[in-house]
Simulated scan of single mutants.
Amino acid sequence: MNELLNLAVDPAAWAALITLIVMEVVLGIDNLIFISILSNKLPEEHRQRVRRIGISLALIMRLVLLSTIAFIVGLVHPVFDLGIAGPTGPHGEPSFETAFSWRDLILLAGGLFLIWKATKEIHHTVDPNQESHDVLDKTGAAISNVGSAIFQIILLDLVFSIDSILTAVGMTDHLPIMVIAVLVAVTVMLLAADPLANFINNNPTVVMLALGFLLMIGTVLIAEAFGMHVPKGYIYTAMAFSAAVEGLNMMSRRAAAKKKAAAGEH
């Protein structure tokens, strides 16, 4: 209790909490985009339930990982090294390396899976032969796909959860701050789940943009696994710019539709 009171009156603790909440929310939204795209592939009656299961699993994984901080920190120690490294930069660090820790291996597997899944979804979106993919009209297929969706969500929840907790560990030593930030981020995920999923479902071009984001995130995860640090600010600035351009396109399409409707009335 004394520790909580001391943290409550410490400006540095509040600064760390606010910063960590923002970073956790961003990671949570990345996680949520993937959950939304997967759940929107399911029949209407299964979507909300799968989204709730996915977000609940994300919360459980994050809290379980928080309770094993010492173990999680140990994940950054190399378990094997291929002995390959890139040229050194201005600060003496190699541009890439092949000394893999368990965290690196998880990020590598998650990045590859994310790229594979996003590429597959893009192929299905642009493939004119949609009939071959429309298998959700059969009850057995729907049940199978619900299980498949949940399994894929679990895999990516694990990747995002480990990334989330390692971010928290790197920013503060205070467990209460980590717990609060994680709980706030998951609460935001819960509140945003249905609106975001419905928005993505109702705007087909946004689906392609979101899949592009997932490709980029998967590439960044692989780069991180090889020790190539990509500043997150660049990534999220690119995502924000792309989203803004797509927003302008949507406004343009709506204005054109209204103009066409008004012309039709006359």
Rank of each mutant, 00 (worst) to 15 (best):
S161Y: 06
R47S: 05
V126Y: 14
D173Y: 05
D173C: 05
F34Y: 14
E93D: 15
L166Q: 14
W116L: 13
R103H: 15
D30V: 03
K41N: 14
V169L: 15
V126F: 15
G92N: 13
L156Y: 01
L66Q: 00
H133S: 09
G140W: 02
S95P: 09
I69L: 13
H124Y: 04
L136R: 07
I84G: 10
I33L: 14
K120H: 15
L112G: 07
P90V: 15
N31M: 13
S148I: 06
G86V: 05
F151M: 08
N129M: 12
N129L: 13
V64F: 07
G170N: 09
S161F: 09
V73N: 08
I33P: 00
I154S: 13
S148F: 10
I72F: 00
P94C: 08
T139R: 11
G28N: 06
I154K: 05
M61I: 06
I60Q: 11
I53M: 02
H174D: 14
R49N: 12
T139N: 14
P128R: 11
A168F: 10
R51L: 11
G92P: 07
F113E: 09
L57M: 03
D163S: 15
P94F: 09
L156W: 02
V64K: 06
Q152K: 05
E45F: 00
L42V: 13
D81T: 13
V126E: 11
S164I: 00
R47T: 06
I60V: 14
I106M: 08
K41F: 08
H91P: 00
K41V: 01
L66P: 00
L32W: 01
N31F: 14
I33W: 08
I154C: 03
S39N: 02
K138D: 10
P90N: 13
F71T: 14
I53S: 00
G111S: 11
K117W: 10
L108S: 07
V79I: 15
A141Y: 10
H133W: 15
I55S: 06
D81A: 06
K117P: 02
R62L: 01
S132R: 15
E45D: 04
I165M: 09
I35F: 10
N145K: 06
I150K: 03
Q130T: 08
H174W: 08
E121N: 12
S95Y: 14
A142I: 12
K120W: 05
A141T: 00
G86M: 04
A168D: 07
P128A: 07
F71K: 07
S101R: 04
V79G: 07
A99P: 03
I69T: 12
L114D: 02
H91V: 15
I60T: 13
E97Y: 10
H46D: 11
G110W: 03
H174I: 08
G147T: 09
F34V: 06
F100W: 08
I72N: 05
F151T: 03
K41E: 12
R62K: 04
V64R: 10
G140V: 06
H124D: 11
G54N: 02
I29L: 13
T125F: 15
I29H: 05
I72E: 04
R49K: 13
S39M: 12
V79S: 06
E131Q: 03
H174Q: 14
I55E: 01
V79P: 01
G147Y: 13
